[in-house]
């Protein structure tokens, strides 16, 4: 059944979009991530303008991260002060990201920037995740305990001022790296149409040594607020958020996530991270190929204004 998307201005098959929502929701539930890094490329692939895809996926991720955050809240697995501190940087980063998004769009370089960001970020993160999880799998095969906190490895940023104690996560760190991480996630998320969960979780674990018990719930709160504000900002400045598209995606997404979460519980953490790393790397490489291979059409059109009533 074809349905006409009012902002994307194209008809799409509602079941195809719903199925995409389900599939990405399944993956997001399985790994505890938003899945924006998969959803945005998929939408671009079915012919939705990259700018509309990025803006509408923000809305979709806001919905899926709220349902995730609520279930973590019930399990008391959210570090609220840490989330608030991350958000201080996150909102600022989102505003910066939306500003750059608008600027690049007017310079006709937005699609290139989205492509380049996907390539660099996804291949790097995917590669690191694969390497880390392979090491962890080998370690567990040798019978050594897996320890992600690596105690004793003090980095330079642990000596920074404005130290704050986060009780639930049992960490005592400077506020500066917390703000910085929040800013980076908000900024990157607004440009790429991703929640940034797959970036944020490793950053919180490795840099701030947030324990695994609170890391996913806290990261979901940040994703929720940055993506909800990205929705409002993209809508106010670029008028590109397709509410209908977002609604179909989120209905599929929240249902898929329930099944994904069940599937994820049957797998070990290392295997899950390896699988996610492969997925992230594959999407990154897909974008790399697109940038390098001669495009089918060297020309493209961007409509600047229409005399629509």
């Amino acid at each position: 059944m074809q349905i006409y998307l009012p902002i994307a201005d194209i008809p799409v098959n509602i079941f195809l979009v719903l199925a995409m929502g389900l599939a990405v929701g399944f993956i997001s539930g399985m790994f505890g991530i938003g899945g924006g890094f998969l959803m945005t490329p998929l939408l671009i692939f079915i012919g939705i303008a990259p700018a509309v895809a990025v803006a509408s996926v923000s809305t979709h991720i806001a919905a899926s991260s709220l349902s995730g955050a609520i279930s973590y809240w019930r399990r008391r697995a959210i570090d609220v002060p840490l989330a608030v501190m991350l958000l201080a940087g996150g909102i600022l980063g989102t505003a910066g990201g939306v500003w750059l998004f608008t600027l690049l769009r007017s310079l006709d370089q937005l699609d290139l920037m989205i492509g380049l960001s996907y390539v660099t970020l996804l291949t790097a993160v995917g590669g690191l995740m694969i390497a880390e999880s392979v090491r962890a799998i080998i370690r567990s095969h040798q019978g050594k305990p897996v320890d992600l906190r690596r105690p004793g490895s003090h980095a330079w940023f642990h000596g920074l001022p404005f130290k704050v104690r986060f009780k639930r996560s049992r960490i005592y760190v400077s506020a500066i790296p917390v703000w910085t991480i929040g800013f980076i996630i908000g900024f990157v998320g607004a440009i790429m149409g991703i929640g940034g969960g797959f970036l944020l979780v490793p950053m919180l674990i490795y840099f701030l040594r947030v324990p695994t018990a609170t890391v996913i719930g806290t990261s979901m709160v940040l994703t929720l607020v940055t993506m909800a504000s990205a929705t409002v900002m993209h809508a106010a400045t670029n008028h590109l958020v397709d509410a209908l598209l977002a609604l179909i995606l989120m209905v599929g997404g929240v249902i898929g996530a329930q099944f994904g979460a069940r599937a994820g519980q049957k797998m070990s953490g290392e295997r899950l991270r390896l699988l996610l790393g492969v997925l992230v790397l594959a999407v990154g490489l897909r974008f790399a190929i697109q940038l390098i291979v001669t495009p089918d059409d060297l020309y493209s059109i961007r409509i600047i204004e229409t005399a629509a009533p």
Binding site: T59, A62, A63, L66, A228, V232, L247
Partner: peptide, 8 residues
Amino acid sequence: TAAMALLT
């Protein structure tokens, strides 16, 4: 739209 997302 954001409210719709949160409600969903």
